[in-house]
Every structure is written in structure tokens, then in C-alpha cells.
């Protein structure tokens, strides 16, 4: 029983983080058909903001809020620098600019900060453990679960009950029609990038909180995770991205328990082969996105 509970906590906390990562990627892809390679760097930006403000003596929550804000700004910057100027050109051009912007941010961190890991401040509670019902677990895991629940709730509320959210969902199926109803394209695009940045910022606090340090390449793993999760869940479905995140976490943790050590190191090869197979078998993912697949 306690094993089961332990397993559930592991899956839910990892899955919560994965789900938020995937959601941040898919909100941009769903509306703009842009695979944003610079997404991982939004997580990096939040991490370095924590490092840079660590000497300020501000309470942790304030620093975290600033870091999330910086991630949002970086998200909006992605729109202005990498997306908007080439938006009308080709799909390939947009992909390449986002890849270039990702490299740009990473190397800016290398150049202006350091290639070596930098410590970020963590609140006490991140390193504590909690014991209940016969299970000992880091408090961090429970915080991750709680944060994921709050963020997913907030996100769902935003998408269902605000005009902006409804307009974004509409734009995901048919951008032109949404514009013909008066929804400004630029507002939708910037909002998508801003929300992506918000999710990346929050994920960053949880993700970097596991190791307590940030390096320029910190964004790669979350980006890869988000990729897999969104492919599993369907590239265009918001619910699918969340489900994909949890499924991937379930798979990862199950593999951790069951796979022999010398195969475990190939885990990424397995999961990414799975990605390729899913895309071949069901290009729209396990969960279908919005019904009419009109492109913008």
C-alpha cells in the first residue's frame, strides 16, 4: 500500500511538472503551428533571474515572481524577435529562427554569466521531507503536485471563462475566422507566448528546485520532455498535452523500476523512438486536437 502511495506521489509530482512543460509548448504550437525550440530557454531565463537576484535579500516568493515575470518577457521577446518578422514566410523559416533564438539565449548565458553551474536560492521547505501514511517523500514533490493543480486550474479557467481564452481556443482551430470576428492576431500571438512564458517560469522554479543550480543548457531536458508529452497527447490538444505529461511520467517511473540498469541508460532512445512511432501511427497524437484542422 505504501509502495503504491509512494509510486503515485512520484508519478503525480513528476507528471505535474511534465504536464506544465507540455502545456507551455502546446499553447504556442496549437495556435501558431510553431514548434518553439526556444521554449527551454524560457526556463533557463527564469533560473538565471533567480541566480542574479539571489543577493538581493528579497523574500524567496518575490524573487520567484520576478523570475516568472522575466520568463514571460522572454516569451514575448520570442514572438517579436523570432516569430513575428518571419511569420508570413515559411514554416521552415519560423522553426529555424526559433532554433537560432534558442542558441542565442543559451550562448548569451554562457558569455555573460558562466558555463559553470550557478546556485539558485531555494526556500527551506524544498529540502525538507514529509512523512505520512508510512511514506517519506520530499516536501518538494507535494509542492509540485499542488502547484500543478493550481496552475492547471487557473489555465483551464482562463481558457474557458475569459473572452481572451475563448478567443485563443477559437484561433487554434481557425485563425482567420477569429480575426474576421475582430480578434486581433497580434494580441492572440503575444498572449500565447506570454502564457507559454508563465508556464515555463513556474516549471523553472520546480525543475531547478530539484538540483538548486542553473546551467546554460538547463532548458534542453524540459524541451525534450515537452516534445514527447505533446506528441503522445496530440500536438494540438491542450488536454492531450496534460495527459501526455502524466503518461510520460508514469512511463518514466515505471521504466526506472523495471528496466535493468544497462538498458536504463538508453531510456531516451526508447522514448524518442516511441515518439517517432506515435507520429507515424497517429500523426494527430493519442488525443485528437480541435476537429477542423485548418491551417493559418
Amino acid at each position: 500500500m505504501s509502495f503504491f502511495l509512494q509510486f503515485m506521489i512520484d508519478v503525480l509530482s513528476l507528471g505535474g511538472a511534465y504536464a506544465l512543460m507540455a502545456l507551455g509548448l502546446v499553447i504556442v504550437y496549437g495556435i501558431l503551428r510553431l514548434v518553439n525550440f526556444a521554449y527551454g530557454e524560457l526556463i533557463m531565463v527564469a533560473g538565471y533571474t533567480m541566480y542574479l537576484t539571489s543577493g538581493s535579500g528579497l523574500p524567496w516568493l518575490v524573487m520567484a515572481a520576478v523570475a516568472v515575470l522575466m520568463a514571460i518577457m522572454a516569451g514575448i521577446a520570442t514572438d517579436y524577435i523570432a516569430f513575428r518578422p518571419v511569420r508570413a514566410k515559411s514554416v521552415t523559416a519560423v522553426l529555424i529562427t526559433s532554433f537560432a533564438f534558442s542558441t542565442l539565449l543559451q550562448n548569451a548565458a554562457l558569455l555573460f554569466i558562466s558555463p559553470r553551474p550557478r546556485n539558485v536560492p531555494l526556500p527551506e521547505i524544498f529540502s525538507e521531507t514529509v512523512q505520512f501514511a508510512g511514506v517519506i517523500t520530499p516536501a518538494r514533490n507535494l509542492i509540485t503536485i499542488a502547484t500543478a493543480v493550481v496552475m492547471l486550474g487557473l489555465f483551464s479557467w482562463l481558457m474557458r471563462h475569459t473572452v481572451l481564452g475563448i478567443a485563443m481556443r477559437a484561433a487554434a482551430t481557425n485563425f482567420t475566422m477569429a480575426r474576421m470576428l475582430g480578434v486581433p492576431a497580434n494580441l492572440i500571438i503575444s498572449s500565447a507566448f506570454a502564457i507559454s512564458g508563465l508556464l515555463a517560469g513556474v516549471v523553472s522554479m520546480l525543475w531547478i528546485g530539484r538540483v538548486g543550480a542553473v546551467v546554460p543548457g538547463v532548458g534542453l531536458e524540459p524541451l525534450l520532455i515537452a516534445f514527447i508529452a505533446t506528441v503522445i497527447g496530440g500536438m494540438r490538444s491542450l488536454q492531450g498535452a496534460v495527459l501526455g505529461g502524466f503518461l510520460l511520467a508514469f512511463m518514466d517511473i515505471t521504466l526506472n523500476f523495471t528496466l535493468p540498469q544497462d538498458l536504463l541508460k538508453f531510456r531516451d532512445a526508447f522514448t524518442f523512438s516511441l515518439v517517432i512511432l506515435i507520429l507515424l501511427w497517429r500523426p494527430q497524437g493519442l488525443i485528437r486536437g480541435p476537429a477542423s484542422g485548418q491551417r493559418t
Partner: peptide
């Protein structure tokens, strides 16, 4: 380090 990559990234964006 990283200066070269930054220049290349900017050049790519500008060209595109």
C-alpha cells in the same frame, strides 16, 4: 565563450 554562436544566431535571424 559563446560569442561566435551569438553572432551566427543573429546573422541567421537577420538573413531569414
Amino acid at each position: 565563450i559563446g560569442l561566435t554562436e551569438i553572432v551566427l544566431a543573429l546573422a541567421m535571424i537577420v538573413v531569414l
